[in-house]
């Protein structure tokens, strides 16, 4: 775990050194702030003291931003060969994957932390449901973790950042919307399965303020699945070239 932290902190630092972090944070705050407070069905139009608008916007903004921060993490190391040097240090593949995952999760947490003024403002404006807001943030973190692990996986299989970005978006799109759309076109078991696979179903039930073990298992298994797949991709280099 200590070594995962060392890697996480190094990666977080390089996010900030390379301006990626600032661009991502400013763009995230800008987009979600604009749509939450100023445009469309914003908070004033809804006239309700909750952050539902923000959670709906963040669902989409994070979907685009996370592949952009994960795409470099393995693809760049694969391309330059630094991954080999890293793996000759006394770290396991799993520690490397964990480290990079944590770095992204920390960055997303910072981004979400910067939206706390939204929460405080709404709280001052009216009678906010603290529980639903908290679960909303938890939902965003869980959803982000899924996209991070998908992004890490697509980044680990290629040496090209653009390919990593696009495949992560494409894979994410299935969980984000395609399964949901398909679910509404099917009935019976197929429909139920597709609806269960859709991330939005689980995300919405969490943002409503209900943390169900069914949803937690869904998120945990997706995260683990892609993290293990990433670790296996890294371990595979030992066996062949």
């Amino acid at each position: 775990m200590r070594r995962s932290w060392i890697i996480a902190i190094k990666e977080l630092q390089s996010f900030f050194d390379s301006l990626t972090a600032y661009i991502m944070l400013i763009a995230f705050i800008g987009f979600s702030g604009f749509f939450t407070w100023l445009y469309g069905t914003d908070i004033f139009l809804r006239n309700q003291a909750d952050l539902k608008v923000f959670f709906a916007i963040a669902y989409w903004t994070l979907f685009f931003f996370i592949p952009a921060i994960t795409m470099r993490l393995f693809a760049e190391e694969n391309r330059t060969g630094t991954i080999e040097l890293l793996l000759t240090k006394p770290v396991t593949e799993w520690q490397v994957v964990m480290g990079k995952f944590l770095a992204c999760l920390l960055l997303v947490t910072i981004a979400l932390g910067l939206t706390l003024p939204y929460y405080i403002t709404v709280w001052k404006l009216g009678n906010i449901d603290h529980g639903a807001t908290l679960t909303g943030y938890i939902g965003l973190l869980l959803m982000s973790s899924v996209y991070i692990s998908i992004g890490l996986f697509t980044s680990s299989v290629t040496g090209n950042q653009i390919v990593a970005f696009l495949t992560a978006l494409f894979a994410g799109l299935f969980f984000n919307i395609i399964f949901d759309v398909l679910a509404s076109n099917f009935t019976g078991t197929t429909g139920t399965i597709l609806s269960y696979l859709s991330l939005s179903t689980h995300y919405e039930s969490i943002t409503r303020g209900v943390i169900d073990s069914k949803d937690l298992i869904y998120f945990a298994s997706l995260i683990l699945l892609f993290m293990i797949a990433t670790e296996m991709t890294l371990s595979k280099r030992k066996l062949s070239k």
């Binding site: 390089s14 390379s18 330059t80 060969g81 630094t82 080999e84 000759t88």
Partner: peptide
């Protein structure tokens, strides 16, 4: 201690 063939390093560190 290992020095690989093409000495891969992180250029922005």
């Amino acid at each position: 201690g290992f020095l690989p063939e093409n000495n891969p390093l992180y250029p922005d560190m």
